[in-house]
Computed example of a mutant assay.
Amino acid sequence: MSLVERHETLSQSSAVWDGGMGSVSDYVALLKPRVMSLVIFTAFVGLMLAPGKVHPVLAAVAILCIAIGAGASGALNMWYDADIDEIMTRTRKRPIPAGKITPNEALAFGITLAIGSVVTLGLLVNWFAGAFLAFTIFFYVIVYTMWLKRSTPQNIVIGGAAGAFPPMVGWASVTGSVSLESFVLFLIIFMWTPPHFWALALFKCGDYRAAGIPMLPVVAGETNTRHHILIYALLLAPIGVAPFLLGFASSVYGAAATGLGLVFVALAADLWRKREGEAARQASMRLFKFSIFYLFLLFALLLAESLVLGA
């Protein structure tokens, strides 16, 4: 059975199911809370680094709207990907394939949150930020989920832009515009995304192959994927230092970013050397876990400096 047929079968089965059995926790799961937490954090950093002042209540509204917009994207992603989520071990316990929420319920939930977050951000904060949030949701749901994810091994490269937009939306919530500084924050996440997800894809390659998702390890092979990871790590390391080089972060940040970048490259090189077996799987998971720490610490340092300098 093809993926399209699976999707149609799942949708048809939901049509005869009354639904309404999902708990609050099931709807929270639809929001992809782990992804949402990263979105909230990076958007908050963008908001705090932006020049100018914004009322604390409006700042809280902006972050809440960005979070809800991210949750809407997650719900719509789970609605569309319910067929492949049912196949992959990593995702088969999600609310829709687990039979706790119907696809139609997830679709209505996602659309409601998406419209509500965009309109609220536009009305209460500014319409540039609202439009940017709408574009971010569109990019993740339409461009990445519906188009790129199932059609090209470059899905995570281009589609990763959606996850990199939040700090720019946070920045726009304060200034009503974007700038070079906000673009640098975007670029750090954009360049971080491919090696982060490819490391996981190496570990979960069988899942992606079974679901028919053309992730790079499935299409180009694991060796080629390791080459790409190392190249992106080498490109990411100097970009991570860019806030210091451009003068909107201190030498403390610059030193920390340099050290973290070197560790990232070292782990990518270790993965590049270990081509097969359990050692290769462990190397991919080490890089995946460190990549989360890397991004968190870079943005945490930027946030700490903005709080100290702004005090």
Rank of each mutant, 00 (worst) to 15 (best):
P217E: 02
T225W: 07
L235Y: 09
I188M: 13
A237N: 06
A249P: 04
W198F: 01
L185R: 06
F183G: 00
P194M: 05
D207C: 01
E276D: 09
L200S: 02
A249K: 09
T258M: 06
F197M: 01
C205E: 10
V265D: 07
A242G: 06
A242D: 09
D270T: 14
N224E: 15
E222I: 03
F197Y: 01
A280G: 08
G254M: 09
G247W: 04
Y232V: 10
A257V: 12
G247P: 02
H196M: 02
L271P: 07
A220W: 13
A210S: 03
A233S: 08
L234N: 08
L262F: 14
H196V: 02
A211D: 01
P238K: 05
A201F: 01
G277P: 01
L271S: 01
E222R: 10
A280H: 11
G261V: 14
L235F: 15
L185G: 04
Y232R: 09
I189R: 02
H227M: 07
G212H: 06
A210E: 07
V219Y: 13
K274T: 12
L187M: 11
A256T: 15
G247M: 12
A257F: 14
I188G: 08
A242W: 03
L235D: 11
G247I: 10
A279D: 10
D207W: 05
A268T: 12
G261R: 11
I189L: 12
L235Q: 09
F203G: 00
Y232E: 08
L236A: 08
Y232C: 05
L271M: 09
I239E: 05
E276Y: 03
W272G: 07
A280M: 14
G254P: 05
G247K: 04
K204F: 02
P217I: 07
P243Y: 06
P214T: 14
